[in-house]
């Protein structure tokens, strides 16, 4: 464990908690892409099946349980409890265009052709594009609530910190996982446009609105 990975995990945890609290406190999921949240729940489910097979550490196990629990709770709030506030018309990204290619790629390019490893690889590839429905929804509505932008910033920052963690681990431990690194670079690049808007607008107290 190094400081970059620890802060990456804490940033990821913050993002998940911010979103869950935002929906719970405001009793509304307006502006939130339910499709992205379903993809994240799939990402955690397929990645953390090793909860059943191997124990790494208390930290590892507890964080995985928290991620899975919160992501399913978020999906439940969006599609069940606060369903009336779900903006389905703007959450129209075709996720099958993500899941099918990612599934195919996971079968073709992986470290080991075993079920758990292919599911882990699928989860890594899926996570890199899972935010697309949310970014697409913001481009369609032309704006995002400030709390949603903080959620997105933490979500994007987490994998950016993981990139630094991988540089650290390669240099100090000689460890690198090309699949996770390439997917992590793609994932972080997808946030660049948002990062620019976040820094130039939200951090200056303005609302995030896109030229519609």
């Amino acid at each position: 464990m190094n400081i970059f990975r620890l802060f990456g995990d804490l940033s990821h945890l913050a993002a998940i908690i911010i979103l869950l609290l935002k929906i719970w406190k405001s009793r509304s999921c307006a502006g939130i892409s339910g499709k992205s949240q379903i993809l994240f729940a799939i990402v955690f489910t397929t990645r953390y099946l090793d909860l059943l097979t191997s124990f790494i550490s208390l930290y590892n196990t507890s964080m995985k349980m928290i991620y899975i629990g919160c992501s399913y709770a978020t999906v439940y709030l969006i599609y069940a409890k606060f369903r009336a506030t779900y903006d389905g018309n703007h959450d129209s990204f075709r996720v099958e265009f993500l899941i099918v290619p990612v599934g195919g790629l996971a079968v073709l390019i992986n470290h080991d052709f075993s079920l758990l490893e292919i599911l882990w690889t699928f989860s890594i590839y899926l996570e890199s594009v899972a935010i697309l429905p949310q970014l697409f929804m913001i481009s369609k509505t032309g704006e995002a609530e400030t709390i949603t932008t903080h959620y997105l910033f933490c979500q994007g920052l987490y994998r950016a910190l993981y990139l630094i963690n991988w540089i650290w681990r390669f240099y100090f431990e000689g460890f690198f996982d090309m699949i996770a690194i390439v997917a992590g670079v793609v994932q972080t690049i997808l946030y660049c446009d948002f990062f620019y808007l976040y820094v130039t607008k939200v951090l200056k107290g303005k609302k995030l609105s896109l030229p519609a």
Binding site: D50, I56, K64, F170, M178
Partner: peptide
């Protein structure tokens, strides 16, 4: 460097 046997990252 070889890939990890068990994935130790979240």
């Amino acid at each position: 460097a070889d890939e990890p046997a068990a994935h130790d990252e979240l």
